[in-house]
Amino acid sequence: MTAPETEQPNHALSRRNLFRGAAAGGLLIGGITLPTGPAQAAPAPRAYTRAEWSARPPRSATQVIGAPDHIVIHHTASQNVTDYSLAAAYKVSHWIQDLHMDTNGWIDAGQQLTISRGGYLMEGRSKSLSSIANRQNVLGAQTANHNSHTIGIEHEGIYVTANVPTALFDTSVLTCAWLCNTYGLDPHVAIVGHRDYNTTQCPGDVFYARLPELRDRVAAAMG
């Protein structure tokens, strides 16, 4: 899960659809075919904006900062729900924002991006998607003492003993490949777990053990 707010820089998807793209020579994730041939970069995944899931406005202005050098993998430590719908993805985005604003007292959702258990990619903190498009970042509150140089992805669920859903993991591959391409990052260096920076269980023992696989698949997706 996320770490305390630091506002100052401190230097869905069915299994059938997953395989439908194979006949076309690629992997279909969220309506996007990811080419599997050599030297083909992953496309930007479909991301649902804050306007689409009806996010609350931030309490104060979101700070746009420079490009990140690491991608931090989180889990939300919430229930491993079996509702993989887009409506459920909207619901978890609201839950995260309410928790971070009303309980933690932060200006907004702490993380830049969220992936639901159904594999839907959601915009988190305000201006995250526009900043990524401009090869910038927004100052989040997802990794204590490292918010100024990282971008965080919350993955819905808790992965201490449970495995990561296929749809969620596949979308994480696409998302990380998109971010690494955008920022010119080496996935084998840039992709880290929350516990690599802070004393935390996040992103769970099972998910953390799969980070080498995530890095390898991202590198392959980037061509």
Rank of each mutant, 00 (worst) to 15 (best):
G184K: 14
T103W: 10
R125C: 01
G66V: 13
T36R: 11
V218K: 04
A190T: 04
I107R: 07
Y197C: 02
T33M: 05
Y159C: 01
A55N: 03
S93T: 11
T182L: 09
H146N: 13
V64P: 01
G37M: 07
I151W: 09
M122H: 00
R56A: 14
G25P: 02
G25Y: 04
H194N: 15
L168I: 01
E7C: 05
V92S: 03
T166Y: 12
L13D: 14
A12I: 08
A221C: 02
H149N: 13
H70L: 06
E123L: 03
L34E: 04
P35T: 09
A89P: 00
T161R: 09
Y90L: 06
A41Q: 15
R46N: 12
V81A: 12
G152K: 02
G119P: 00
I158A: 14
A144W: 13
M101Y: 06
N134A: 15
L13F: 08
L174Y: 04
I73P: 00
G193E: 12
P38G: 11
I29F: 03
H100P: 06
R135E: 14
T33P: 04
F169S: 04
R135F: 08
L99Q: 15
L34A: 07
N134R: 15
V92R: 02
A47Q: 12
G25K: 09
S148C: 03
T36K: 08
I71P: 09
A23C: 08
A39N: 11
W178R: 03
P58E: 06
Y90E: 06
Q63S: 10
K91D: 14
M1W: 04
L86I: 10
I73W: 02
Q8T: 13
T161M: 05
A51Q: 12
R135S: 15
T166G: 07
I96T: 11
A219S: 10
L13T: 10
L185G: 03
G30Q: 11
T182G: 05
R135A: 15
D196I: 01
G140F: 05
I115S: 04
H94T: 08
G193C: 15
P45D: 08
G157A: 02
A44E: 13
